[in-house]
Design a protein around this nucleic acid. Structure first.
Lengths: 138, 138
DNA sequence: GTAAATGCAAAGAATTTGCTAGCCC
DNA sequence: GGGCTAGCAAATTCTTTGCATTTAC
C-alpha cells in the first residue's frame, strides 16, 4: 500500500526545487514565482505556495520567517545559522559550527526538542563599511 | 529642543503596555486588541498596530515572528530565548543563560552584530506527555 | 496652538482555498 | 483510471494607511 500523502513528481515541483537549489539567497515565495515563470510562464502563484508548503513539510526545504511579514525559503537542509542585515535586508548563512549540547540543556527542562534556530541581527560587512564612511564624513 | 519623534503619552498606549506586561504569553496583535477592548470598547485595531509598532521601535517591547504569518509581541525587554511547541503553539521564555561570546564570533567574520535570537522547536512538556500516553496505548 | 494620535473604513500585501481540468503512477 | 496537482480566481488573514477629529503638552 502506497503511503497516503504520496508526493508526486511534477514538472512544476522540479523547477521550484531547481530554482531554490540554484540560489544562495533566501528567496520569498514571490521571487520563486518570478523565477519559475521564466521557464513556465503559465505557472500560478497558488502552485508555488502549495509546493513550497509540501516541500517544507517533507523536509526538502526549510521555511523561515525573519521578523518580516513574509516567509523565506532555503534549500539548504542542514542545520545552519543566519545573519540578517537590518540595513539592506541581506540574509546570509553563517559558516559557524552547530552548538552542541544546547538542545540537551533545554530537554533537561522537560521539553522534547526537535530543532533550534539561531539568528544574528545587525549590519553586514558592506553596510557596516558604509556607515563608517558616513560617520567619518561628519 | 524636543526630540523630533516625541512620543506622547496616551491612554491607549498605556493600556496596551499594561496588557502586554500583564501576560506571560506572547500575544498577537489581535489578542492585544481583544484585551484592550475590554477596557476601551472603542479602540481601533489600527491604533493597536500603530502603537505596537511605535513601542517596539522605541524598545519598550519586542516584536517576534515565530515561523507563522503573524507577529507576536513581548514586553520582556531583556534578551532571552524561546521554546515553541509545534503541537499546541505554546511559546515560552526559557530561563537559560545568555550565550556569551557568540556575537563576538560572528563579529569576527566582518559583521556588526547588534543582537541575536535563539529558538527551540519541539514538544512542550504537556504535549510530550500526551504523545507518550498515545504511543503506549498502541 | 500645534503636532501627534485616534477612530473608522478602505486599501494592501501575503497566503490560502474552491473548483474544474489535467497529468502522474 | 484514480487521485494527486495545476491553473485560475475569489476569499481570507494580517497589517497598513488616508483623512477628519480629538487630544496631549
Amino acid at each position: 500500500m502506497k503511503p497516503k500523502g504520496f508526493v508526486r513528481r511534477t514538472r512544476q515541483r522540479e523547477v521550484i526545487l531547481e530554482v531554490l537549489r540554484g540560489t544562495k539567497g533566501h528567496p520569498t515565495a514571490d521571487w520563486v514565482y518570478q523565477e519559475v515563470r521564466k521557464t513556465m510562464p503559465h505557472v500560478s502563484l497558488g502552485t508555488i505556495y502549495r509546493n513550497l508548503k509540501t516541500l517544507s513539510e517533507h523536509g526538502e526545504i526549510q521555511e523561515l520567517a525573519f521578523g518580516s511579514t513574509h516567509s523565506r525559503f532555503d534549500a539548504n537542509k542542514e542545520v545552519h545559522y543566519h545573519f540578517v542585515c537590518e540595513q539592506c535586508g541581506l540574509i546570509e548563512d553563517l559558516d559557524m559550527p552547530i552548538l552542541e549540547g544546547l538542545e540537551e540543556e533545554v530537554a533537561q527542562r522537560g521539553y522534547r526538542v526537535v530543532s533550534h534556530r539561531l539568528e544574528f541581527y545587525g549590519l553586514c560587512p558592506d553596510c557596516a563599511a558604509d556607515e563608517e564612511a558616513v560617520s567619518q564624513a561628519n
